[in-house]
Design a binder for these strands. Sequence first.
RNA 1: GGCGUCGUAGCCAAAUGGCUAAGGCAGUGGAUUGCAAAUCCACGAUUUACCGGUUCGAAUCCGGUCGACGCCU
Length: 319
Amino acid sequence: MTDSGEIISPITDAFFLTGPTAGGKTKIGVKLANLIDAEVISLDSMAVYRMMDIGTAKPTELEREGVPHHLIDVCDPWEEYSLADYLKDAGRAADEIRARGKRVLFVGGTPLYLKGALCGIFEGPPADAEYRNELAAREAAEPGALHRLLAERAPDDAERLHPNDTRRIIRALEIFRARGRSITSFQTQFHAESGRTNRCRGAVLDWERPVLNTRIDRRVDQMMKDGFSDEVGRLLSLGKPLSKTALQGVGYAELAAVLRGEAEPDEAVERIKLRTRRFAKRQATWFRSLSGLTPIEMNEPVDPDAAAGLIADRFLNEE
RNA sequence: GGCGUCGUAGCCAAAUGGCUAAGGCAGUGGAUUGCAAAUCCACGAUUUACCGGUUCGAAUCCGGUCGACGCCU
């Protein structure tokens, strides 16, 4: 049981800039990239989707200031994209950047992807939609059935997973079916905090919650002015439904409901702000749990050049 | 000024004499390894506007005070 099998390797020798949504990462990231001679790899689970620009606050060509950005617009909105896809793509992009003699700078706020990049994940079988649906239907028909099933097959998983945590229970059952062992026995990568050993440096923008919430509200209002709703309308007119993962992006489902006449615009905007605030809260929980990230205290107004200068200093001079 | 209705956690809201005052939303903390901008978990009223009374026992009944709303003058 000591064999963890193949893993998707952690990223080595890279720099990371992360922080909560609406915290100013994009701008500072570009400045920072220029200062340390790096190319940027977007660390964002939603910016990977083409045509989802405004709602994901994707940096425009202008905002990128000539710095190459990777892992943006790499799949279509009707396709599924996963953590494993991301880590494989990111590893490839990082190698290419290094081959060009540039540094690698990850910029973004998807904490799970960050953790995966820092520690690596075990190489498991891909999602099996059919089996997942089958299990989900079973759970719906008989609540608690899946957890009991897991308890028979992989007691260590069942002990770790809350009976209501259906998603992870399903993944655990999926692993057991494919590998005949508990998912717990494979998931060892996150236990060792490996950011250090991978020679990576990371900074996290740190905001007081009330100030950040104000910025979130302001940004959502700006997105609406920039035509977020029209963007959703274009996606709806594609004729193909958004994938499960793409549809999880804050605002897309809300505004689609408005366009279909099923919701009030004002309520949708409030809901978008609320969901964004809750997302920022969960990000904060991740950041607290990650060791080795240098916190950068942020205040309004933001001076991107100064912030980037400070971070570059920490990255390059404090070895 | 008179009459009526009402006043339960930040908000919405159950319980109308008897187990430790439902639940939802928001908020806070945590989890998080192929859906992660997703999902899951945990936490709130020694107390029902206030004062007094009836009762073995009151958020629930009675009186008063304050406040809100409605109607009348």
